[in-house]
Design a protein around this nucleic acid. Sequence first.
DNA 1: GCGGCCCATGCCTCTGAGGCATGGGGTCCA
DNA 2: TGGACCCCATGCCTCAGAGGCATGGGCCGC
Lengths: 298, 298
Amino acid sequence: MELRHLRYFVAVAEVGSLTVAAKRRLHTAQPSLSRQMSDLEYEVGAQLMVRTARGIELTAAGRVFLDHARLVLAQVEAAREAARRAAEPSKPSFAVGFLTGQEMDWLPEAMRILRDELPNMEVTVSSQYSPQLADALMRGRLDVAFMRPEAQTPDLVYRLVTKEPLVAVLPDDHRLAARDVIDPRDIVGETFVSVSNTAPALRVVINDYLERSKLNITPDHEVDNLAMAMSLIASTRGVAFLPAYARNFMPRSVVSRPLKGDAPTIDLVVGYHKANASPTLKLFLSRVDELITRGRRS
Amino acid sequence: MELRHLRYFVAVAEVGSLTVAAKRRLHTAQPSLSRQMSDLEYEVGAQLMVRTARGIELTAAGRVFLDHARLVLAQVEAAREAARRAAEPSKPSFAVGFLTGQEMDWLPEAMRILRDELPNMEVTVSSQYSPQLADALMRGRLDVAFMRPEAQTPDLVYRLVTKEPLVAVLPDDHRLAARDVIDPRDIVGETFVSVSNTAPALRVVINDYLERSKLNITPDHEVDNLAMAMSLIASTRGVAFLPAYARNFMPRSVVSRPLKGDAPTIDLVVGYHKANASPTLKLFLSRVDELITRGRRS
DNA sequence: GCGGCCCATGCCTCTGAGGCATGGGGTCCA
DNA sequence: TGGACCCCATGCCTCAGAGGCATGGGCCGC
């Protein structure tokens, strides 16, 4: 078995077709990929996929193997990054990631904490979606990230920063904008804007809230990012439930209102890889409470 | 990068020589291995080893990479085992490992707990040194093991079974055998038998105890297993500190005596992989307290 | 200073990954 | 019901790269 097998398998599993995976993802030929997958199954000693006229479907063993294969490939990337880091000790780096939109609230505090370290190291800052932040932490590309607690990340440790309430976001001339507080039942019949799987944790919170409110609302739109959300809210006169920090992105024609009653919250956490032995990370974590205290906004 | 590179690198790192690793471990030629290592370094983007006239020495990056490489290879093995397991759900298996020598005390209790499961599954039993048990748990080859808590095993969870006192083990006609209790200071000047790195946890406990007793004793012999220990004790008229269960292995000419005062203890734990979702493991763990209560011997 | 050991490089062989052709099987639609 | 289309497996061939042999440079120990 070689990493090539794992790479091929992950691609095939994700695409669901040898032909398409060969052509679109792996730039190889379908017969070659077919043989590689057969070789892999022979070496694992289990059938990983069922071939059908419509493509492939993973077996139970295949699904188990897929999780492991992804982990292995992530570990290989982490190995490479870790070796590179170790090879360049001249000016250590500390990489901080932010859930897009959270930089405004938390970057100043994070930099204040790291102030004393700054002359001796290179702090890099980036912003991404939460799943990508999780992936970067897993791969060793980030030391710490302000993110959502992502599922199925056993090697990541999360420290709660704040529980952020969701608010209703809607056009400023919407009939509901006259309310000081929005009852979720008022949303029935309105154009509803939700989020895609680029924000799985938020999606779960929104869906749970709708269920808790006994509302069977199917989203009219699902968006990938806040800018798109604002645009859709304004242009389709829709309503969305978004974390409060989304107010940082509202154009003039869009307003926010609190939700009535027990508003749902979503966690913002500081995440890091538990195997990360960086002394700067240790310092950072030791002052996280201070950052949280100073950084909170009601 | 391929797994081949990682396998080659780990072998080279462990042996310290391209020539010897190629010939003895990898069954390839030295020039070929040299090129593979160069390819690996090119792909990682860091120098992993320094070539000298005496062989190779790892760089800091190489040491970091070695840890990761070992992990990756272990992960691959775990992937294979997990897929095989998932492919054969017909009669589930439950694999129990024992620190060699502990079977006598704990196997009956373990089988009693699993009694109701036995008709529906295949329980396999094996015994090994504790580090090998840890490795097997990591690789998914074992579900649970009676072992020492091994260092640097973040993915393993340990539940304390018992704290086992160490006792002095010595020939029955040794001058100290007349004592009911052995003062560690009496060991000074005697042939002292310790253990090798096949039992790292025990070795640490022994060394800490010697240090705590302010005794600067260098072992005359280091043994790999209990049988060898007994043999050496008898044949060299030496003395060893061993866990109490070693009494299960004493020949007629060897006796044990308690240690005076605050005798050192070593933990016996039940270990398992935290990602192991086996329902039988869950059942087993829910009855571990019962096993411990029944299984303890003073 | 010389012999021996270790590693890197040149050059060649051969293995296996990959490509093309093709056919079997299944599905969908007219 | 039959034909078209899609997907995968297999036969056969090419060629890229892993591996082997020869050889030389550099270092170390005697």
